[in-house]
Amino acid sequence: MTALLDVDTAVATADDGAPRFASWQARAGAIALDVLPGVGVITTMALLAYTTAVGGWLWWVFMGVLAAAALATFVNRWLLPPITGWTMGRAVTRIRVVTATGQPAGSTRLLIRELAHLLDTAALFVGWLWPLGDKRHRTFADLLLRTEVRVVDSVDHPRRNVRRIAGCVLIAAAVLCVAGGGLGYLQVYRQDRALEQARAEIAEQGPRIVEQLLSYGTKSVVDDFARAQALATDGYRPQLVAQQQAVQKSGVTDNEYWAVSSAVLPDPTPTMDRAAMLLALQGQRGSDPNSLKFITATVRADFEKSNGRWQVAVLTVLKKPLTGQNGGPQPPQPPSPPQNKPPR
């Protein structure tokens, strides 16, 4: 997070003329003010973007805020010190990075120093605690780059109130995190509601759609086939038409199905415009009561929603239709009992 500061400073010295080195607490406070607001916003937005559909408007909002927070942190931590001599955190705690001779550290040295802090972290964070025992309060990065962090004196009336700027930055970071979390919650809540609504629609409409897709009569076959084609997606319709043409060539008889049981299947990657259902079907084939055949079958129907209407995308037969005459499938008959023969 950035803060454009313009304060005249001079390195503070003790009464004996020795430089005053920054305390570990001041250094920790400075880096916390410089890094934590940006890291908090970046982490929050990354998590929210991960739970949001990629490419959606809300995903772009989260990624935009993330990029802005990363850029602001980079500017404050790496670009401002060579220009103004300060970062926001160092301005608040009144400390400054200088060379061992007390000269301002250049931009190249400061950038390499930031990278060298990886050594402080890699050594199980011992490098960050090293200033507690070093007489010049240096980390491993300071030892490597020959830099020191010293207390500086400010003029009596600085041109800007740096503490107020830091407070505004902290408040802005907190507001962004809370607002992002609120938007993410609303998005997830709406998505869950939409998924529940889609499952409810399929539970209600799915069985009827499959019944109409598979049922037809000899007198209304043209209209029935046209209705069935309208219930299929563009991808499934050619397969359905080929099946209908095969039925017409072999001779059309009345064919009626109804769903006796159905269940919406769980989807590992649920969406609001796709669903699947398992159906147990019963039906009858033919119109003559003497030759009427009763049918049972089990199918899986995959649905897609287009223009506000659910259509069948794939119809998979899991258990082929079983037919029986005058009362359904005929059970196997038990063997006839043996005939009694007179003894000889």
Rank of each mutant, 00 (worst) to 15 (best):
188 V>L: 08
158 P>H: 05
12 A>E: 12
204 E>L: 13
103 Q>F: 07
210 V>E: 02
24 W>K: 05
229 Q>V: 08
12 A>G: 10
63 M>C: 03
37 P>H: 00
242 A>F: 11
164 R>F: 12
239 Q>D: 08
195 L>I: 14
265 L>W: 12
174 A>T: 06
28 A>M: 14
7 V>Y: 06
271 T>G: 14
19 P>S: 05
31 I>H: 06
68 A>H: 06
296 T>H: 12
207 P>K: 01
26 A>N: 11
193 R>P: 06
25 Q>I: 00
92 V>D: 01
308 G>H: 11
216 Y>E: 00
250 S>I: 06
311 Q>N: 08
144 L>N: 05
222 V>R: 00
216 Y>M: 01
44 T>L: 13
188 V>E: 11
71 L>S: 15
275 A>T: 07
201 E>C: 06
260 V>Y: 07
122 A>N: 10
198 A>T: 15
281 L>T: 02
305 K>Y: 03
270 P>H: 07
67 A>D: 05
82 P>G: 06
5 L>H: 05
43 T>F: 13
234 D>R: 10
181 G>H: 08
78 W>D: 13
188 V>C: 00
112 I>H: 09
270 P>M: 05
82 P>I: 04
174 A>M: 11
214 L>P: 01
59 W>S: 11
75 V>L: 14
203 A>T: 00
213 L>Q: 04
251 G>P: 05
273 D>F: 05
294 F>G: 07
211 E>C: 03
90 R>W: 03
331 P>K: 10
20 R>K: 13
339 Q>M: 15
150 R>K: 11
240 L>K: 07
242 A>P: 04
79 L>S: 04
40 G>V: 03
39 V>T: 09
84 T>L: 04
161 N>P: 12
43 T>Y: 13
23 S>A: 13
124 L>M: 13
39 V>Y: 03
343 P>D: 10
42 I>E: 01
316 T>R: 12
226 A>G: 08
77 R>C: 10
326 N>C: 09
23 S>E: 03
68 A>R: 09
7 V>F: 09
26 A>F: 05
135 K>Q: 12
170 L>F: 08
217 G>A: 04
15 D>P: 06
87 T>G: 04
129 L>K: 04
196 E>S: 13
304 E>C: 11
150 R>T: 06
88 M>W: 05
27 R>L: 03
113 R>T: 12
193 R>K: 08
322 L>F: 06
259 A>Q: 02
51 T>D: 15
276 A>I: 02
225 F>G: 01
54 V>W: 14
146 R>D: 11
112 I>D: 01
93 T>P: 02
259 A>V: 14
59 W>V: 06
266 P>S: 10
256 E>V: 15
189 Y>S: 15
308 G>C: 10
343 P>I: 15
327 G>R: 15
20 R>T: 09
302 D>Y: 12
62 F>V: 14
244 Q>L: 03
227 R>F: 08
59 W>C: 10
192 D>T: 12
226 A>V: 08
216 Y>W: 09
297 A>H: 02
292 L>Q: 13
266 P>F: 04
317 V>M: 14
328 G>W: 04
42 I>G: 01
138 R>Y: 09
22 A>T: 11
158 P>N: 07
49 A>S: 13
241 V>A: 14
222 V>Y: 07
26 A>G: 05
241 V>S: 07
181 G>N: 13
